[in-house]
């Protein structure tokens, strides 16, 4: 895989950002139940921050992680404890928590120096189980298996209380996170990550300290997840170990994959696609269908979800971003049999 940003066109970025901020207003004028859609978009925004970080780790550095729900959990619980029990202001927690989660990332990064590929994926999965158990064990702080109520976020004296405000906070941070991730990818650091992914031996031969950069990748990815965790805790107001199921980690990987591995925009698109599909399109599709036929709704939803994923992976293995690239090249080279030019 080579870098995909060589022919990038940046003039659309400001328009996209404005669109992000305008869309809740559009939504509000279009539908009465905008809070439901906003909530789903908020969820996508939080996950976006995490999947962008996951893409840096799995897509760019090639280190598979099936434990990112655990990072999210550590971030959420740390922030909840720092703000509600230690009395730290939310703004400070926004800075401290990601660093703490990043350090936890280092802890996982340490075995990753020796463990590779699938073994690493499953080790991080084990890490997910261990974190869940530890959260229950420290029940004095975390509330154990009963879960923990979390206060509302207060940003510079402004209390962020409903889905509307959450949207603007989450998407501001999400945009910052995406820009930061893009800067990382474009920098020397990003190229080092890709070098490690493409061939560890070659990277090492070129004088790259693999251990250092692998650890760094885990640290950065952990920080993104921690950041997402803070937002998760303070916009949901309730966290429990059931939130951070092992399946969620798998879903994060699915989001990255559906978007297109190794592209920041891909991770963003994939997250949006999966979250919207699972929580909005499929339930609504089911609602429409149940008017005409009787079916076991829950399993049907899961079935459609699995089917779409499988078809996607079989027919569009490059992901949504790859699909977009294909389409763009098709139009650029329109009359000249473009199909053969893109493989």
């Amino acid at each position: 895989m080579k870098g995909r940003y060589d022919d990038e066109n940046l003039k659309w970025i400001p328009i996209l950002i404005i669109a992000v901020y305008l869309s809740p207003f559009l939504l509000k004028s279009a539908t009465f139940s905008y809070k439901y859609y906003l909530y789903i978009l908020n969820m996508a925004g939080i996950y976006m921050i995490l999947t962008v970080g996951l893409d840096l780790l799995s897509g760019f550095t090639g280190l598979m992680s099936l434990g990112h729900a655990a990072f999210l959990a550590i971030g959420a619980y740390t922030s909840a404890i720092l703000v509600d029990q230690a009395g730290l202001p939310f703004e400070l927690s926004l800075i401290i928590t990601p660093v703490i989660v990043g350090l936890c990332g280092l802890m996982i990064g340490f075995p990753a120096l020796r463990i590779e590929g699938m073994y690493l994926g499953l080790t991080t999965m084990g890490f997910g189980f261990i974190v869940k158990r530890l959260i229950i064990a420290f029940r004095d702080w975390t509330g154990g298996s009963a879960g923990l109520q979390v206060s509302k976020a207060t940003l510079f004296g402004f209390t962020i209380s409903n889905d509307w405000n959450n949207y603007f906070m989450i998407y501001t941070f999400a945009i910052i996170a995406i820009i930061v991730a893009r800067r990382i990818v474009k920098s020397k650091l990003g190229r080092v990550f890709m070098a490690i992914r493409d061939s560890e031996q070659a990277a090492q031969a070129s004088g790259i300290n693999i251990a250092k950069y692998k650890m760094l990748s885990f640290f950065i990815s952990g920080m993104f997840a921690g950041f997402a965790g803070v937002l998760f805790a303070h916009t949901n107001h309730f966290i429990s170990t059931d939130h951070f199921d092992i399946l969620l980690s798998v879903y994060f990987i699915v989001m990255v994959l559906v978007g297109g591995v190794g592209s920041i925009y891909g991770a963003v698109l994939g997250t949006l696609f999966i979250v919207l599909m699972e929580n909005m399109f499929i339930p609504l599709f089911k609602d429409t269908l149940t008017q005409y036929m009787h079916l076991e709704a829950g399993d049907f939803q899961a079935f459609i979800f699995g089917l779409i994923m499988l078809l996607f992976i079989i027919f569009q293995p490059m992901g949504l971003y790859g699909m977009w690239l294909k389409m763009r090249i098709y139009w650029k080279l329109f009359p000249f049999n473009p199909r053969k030019r893109f493989t």
Partner: peptide, 20 residues
């Protein structure tokens, strides 16, 4: 990576289909 994801989707499909 893709094949693993395909097996995961297969897992979801099998589980829901069996229950259906």
């Amino acid at each position: 990576f893709s094949i693993i994801m395909a097996t995961i989707s297969l897992a979801i499909i099998l589980r829901s289909l069996t229950a259906m």
